[in-house]
């Protein structure tokens, strides 16, 4: 995204800093009301109210995790079934080849394992992480976003974006500081 927009606007977006979560949420709502759509907020801890304020849709990750889990169930059972009943059936203590009650624990464990992998890697993937470089880090005060400061970013790709006007809009929202984000 950063590369594509390189030639037109020479900045990534405009960022405003706020002192309190309340200010951030209020500013995010205003920005959305003003018609901005390519908006992102940054905070040192999760703020539930931001989801609706910047219009985050419900994530589809739970569905992915469900399928991951089901895949684990199938893998677990089929692994045991294939190895014990098809590939190398052998009389072990007079038990049936497909000793399904004995296969439950591993089936369960693999269900959880696969679901957990889907959850973590799904989250990282959907979040685009790991990401060694991101323009927002060019804002010097942005390192406070992981401590006590709250930031609102309006990206230059927003159709309504205008360098001066957007910066002015943000400054009017009780922002501590408004800065441009280098790409």
């Amino acid at each position: 995204m950063a590369h594509k927009t390189q030639e037109q606007p020479e900045i990534y977006g405009v960022m405003a800093e706020f002192a309190t979560p309340t200010d951030l949420v209020r500013a995010a709502r205003r920005a959305r009301e003003a018609g901005y759509r390519h908006v992102d907020a940054f905070s040192p801890y999760p703020i539930e109210e931001l989801n609706e304020a910047i219009g985050i849709r419900r994530t589809r990750l739970p569905v992915l995790i469900l399928f991951g889990g089901l895949l684990g169930t199938l893998t677990g059972y089929l692994l045991q079934y294939y190895t014990s009943a098809i590939d190398y059936p052998i009389n072990v203590g007079g038990r049936p080849f497909n000793s399904w009650p004995a296969f439950v624990p591993i089936t369960f464990e693999l269900t959880v394992l696969f679901a957990a992998f889907s959850a973590v890697f799904g989250m990282l993937g959907r979040n685009g992480l790991p990401r060694p470089y991101h323009p927002v880090f060019n804002v010097p005060r942005f390192e406070l976003a992981s401590r006590d400061r709250f930031f609102l970013l309006i990206e230059a790709t927003d159709p309504k974006f205008d360098r001066e006007e957007t910066a002015g809009f943000l400054a009017g929202l009780n922002a501590q500081e408004v800065s441009e984000v280098e790409p």
């Binding site: 995010a28 999760p46 931001l50 989801n51 973590v120 989250m123 979040n127 990401r131 470089y133």
Partner: peptide
């Protein structure tokens, strides 16, 4: 940290996944 920047979108997925985990 893998480039974590505290984006609200990230937090949203993060919280969901953490709860599911």
């Amino acid at each position: 940290a893998m480039g974590w920047r505290g984006s609200a979108r990230h937090w949203h997925r993060y919280e969901t996944v953490y709860l599911i985990l």
